[in-house]
Amino acid sequence: MKHVTRIQDLGPEGVEAVLSQAAAWKLKDPGHIFPGKLLGMVFFNPSLRTRTSFEAVMLRAGGHAIVLDVGSGVWKLEDRPGAVMNADRAEHIKEASPVLSRFVDMLGIRTFSQGGGDEEDEADPVINAFRKWATVPVVSMESAREHPCQGLADALTLRETFGTTKKLPVTLTWAPHIKPLPKAVPNSFLLSAAAAGCEVRVAHPPGFDLHPAVRAEAEAYAKATGGSITYTHDQDEALVGSRAVYAKSWGPTAQTASTPTDVAALLASYSGWMPTRRHMGKAAKDAAFLHCLPVRRNVEVADEVLDHASSRVVDEAGNRYHVQRALLAWMRGG
């Protein structure tokens, strides 16, 4: 039984297999590859692309998706081992996960960071509880640590745009926001790009470091694939000559800013990091712009970047369907 709740479940070989299959099936539809199969989708948080793309995959492949919204028609779920359940969480994942496994063939879980800090996000308690107690394959639809399906879609978009990802110089740049966001998406872009052999430059202000475990994992992938990773606090330096610019906001470490007031002030102080055409002008002439969406226009990214011909954000979102179809097939041994 194969779970995919993090890029580590695939490794560079698995990433390559999924991307190759996704590209092939994008050219020639495989038809009903999941006949009569059911995907149970458990959402702790909202979704647009993730829900729609997974449902489309199952329906077009001859299966069906069942959507469950936690706390809205479904009991609030407890994940903590040994919890005294005397609050509003009426059911434990220890029962919910194996019970759902009796009804469906695969489980998808979407559960954002609960704001407990970098170490809690690294532990990824909710999705790991589902993974521990499920008796069917579990796929991440984004969790506290990672968003592997987004990372795979990013890598497929790079491959389609440039023909290869090997030695491709790409920049992951921090961007401003009105609030601190989780690190799942930047983590997954870094891990997927490294697993695909890119030369990744990561640019962020001081105090916005990604978790050391994520960085170490990415370094291992880069070493295995011939890629590289560099980190800098100089956004312009990271953009020079880059073939792709990936912008995403994420929050500071707890050591950098611990109160909401401190965090808000810190985020506001780096408004100049919002990508504009001036920034894109420092990258290669054929540079593509990527973002996972949703995006706050003119806060996180300027209109002139999102609306430019170099923007690949819609293609990138469309590729969610293709990588997820290939990923579910890979998990089922296809």
Rank of each mutant, 00 (worst) to 15 (best):
V4F: 08
Q8Y: 01
V15T: 13
A17Y: 05
V18E: 11
L19D: 10
K28A: 14
G31E: 01
H32I: 00
K37W: 02
L39S: 10
M41V: 06
M41K: 06
F43G: 09
F44D: 07
P46H: 08
L48A: 13
L48F: 08
R49V: 08
R51K: 14
T52Q: 08
T52A: 15
M58E: 05
G62F: 01
G63P: 03
A65N: 06
V67C: 09
V67L: 10
D69P: 00
V70F: 04
D79K: 06
R80H: 05
G82C: 02
A83N: 04
A90M: 10
K94E: 14
S97M: 10
M106I: 15
L107A: 13
S113T: 14
G116P: 00
G116Y: 01
G116L: 08
G117V: 01
D118P: 00
E119M: 02
A123P: 00
V126N: 04
N128Q: 15
F130C: 05
A134P: 07
P137L: 09
S140W: 06
R145L: 15
R145I: 02
G151Y: 05
L152Y: 09
L152E: 10
D154I: 08
T157N: 14
F162S: 07
T165C: 15
V170Y: 12
L172T: 11
T173R: 06
P176L: 06
P176T: 06
K179G: 00
V185C: 13
S188R: 08
L191G: 04
A195T: 03
A195N: 04
V200W: 06
V202Q: 06
V202A: 12
A203N: 11
V214D: 05
A218L: 02
A224L: 01
S228E: 01
I229N: 04
T230A: 07
T230D: 00
Y231V: 04
H233P: 04
R243E: 13
A244M: 10
T253D: 05
A254Y: 02
A254S: 09
A257V: 04
A268Y: 01
Y270M: 09
T276N: 07
T276E: 03
M280W: 10
M280Q: 11
M280P: 14
A283P: 13
F289W: 11
N298L: 02
V299K: 02
V299G: 03
V301M: 06
V305T: 10
H308P: 12
A329Y: 07
R332N: 09
